[in-house]
Design a binder for these strands. Structure first.
Lengths: 162, 162
DNA sequence: CCGCTTGCGTTGGTGTCACTAACGATATAG
DNA sequence: CTATATCGTTAGTGACACCAACGCAAGCGG
């Protein structure tokens, strides 16, 4: 979808103002910006997500990491591989439960995370450049409400949920 | 990415509040909602986009349609095929320029479009259900500014209007 | 202790989507 | 007439979200 080029042709208002479409296009631009920025530093969105979660939670299993990042556990394998390859993370079997791998952020990983944070800050800034600070906060709040609202469905979830 | 399931595990605030990530997740939910809704009616996002553009512009070439909808011209081929198959649209060679196909919305297509509009309205409503009318308008405006701002690059034109 | 069920990490695969590359046919410029 | 550009079309790519199934380990009931 994404727009590509447009030599001044009229995009119908019904399309221009359709929220689902706006979300799609904005998301495409957003992903492109952050993917390119991180790519220049040999990194990936998922690397950042995993490392942030690891810094907050300390060493955890891959399953827990999947919950905390939203990265599917089948995709997480490759992410951990790449991070471990670069020695940003260590994967070790959990002695208490030998089904698990405990993932630990290395000091190098922590430094790396600082760098990725800078890169992402810049990218967000570019993404939101047409908006004021107040508008950015507003947008973030509104999107957060939408995402939170639609965050149900797949799992069983305890009886207490909801 | 999309969240999948979450048994109450803590998603770090740095992730939850990252605009590019919020956009991605919101977009995923949005696309899922509209794709499923339209799918139940044997339709597709692109069908709607093309038909809206055709209704506004009258008969146009595929290239023009591509500009007006943002659908890549290589993808538009299949879209027109599907619409023509259902007799919602007619594809005829342009006598004035035999490289072109002129695409015309049929009366059946126009009726069909009314139906798709209903479906999409419902889907947008579900998507935005946690927001008030004012907030929905706000969100649409903010997203529109972002999309518009990033809608450059490929063609001539200054790279970064600002 | 044994069998059953559940959770873990891993592999391989699927469908959607935006986008690129190249081609034959046609139109237009020099 | 030759060169270049545009149009529709085909095929293919890479990113992404997600599913299915497996081997293995843990925990539980009997």
């Amino acid at each position: 979808m994404t727009t590509g080029e447009n030599g001044g042709a009229a995009v119908p208002a019904r399309l221009r103002e359709l929220p689902s479409r706006l979300l799609g296009q904005a998301s495409t631009h957003a992903q492109r910006l952050v993917t390119e920025a991180l790519g220049r530093a040999d990194a990936h969105k998922w690397h950042y997500a995993a490392m942030v979660a690891l810094e907050e939670s300390g060493p955890v299993s891959q399953a827990a990491l999947s919950d905390r990042t939203g990265i599917h556990r089948s995709d997480l394998v490759a992410v951990i591989n790449e991070l471990a390859e670069r020695e940003l993370v260590e994967r070790a079997p959990d002695p208490d439960d030998r089904r698990r791998n405990v993932i630990t952020l290395t000091p190098l990983g922590r430094r790396r995370l600082r760098r990725l944070e800078q890169i992402l800050d810049t990218a967000q800034d570019e993404l939101l450049s047409p908006l004021s600070a107040a508008e950015r906060a507003q947008l973030t709040r509104l999107l957060g409400r939408i995402v939170e609202h639609h965050a149900y469905g797949a799992s069983a979830m305890g009886p207490d949920g909801q």
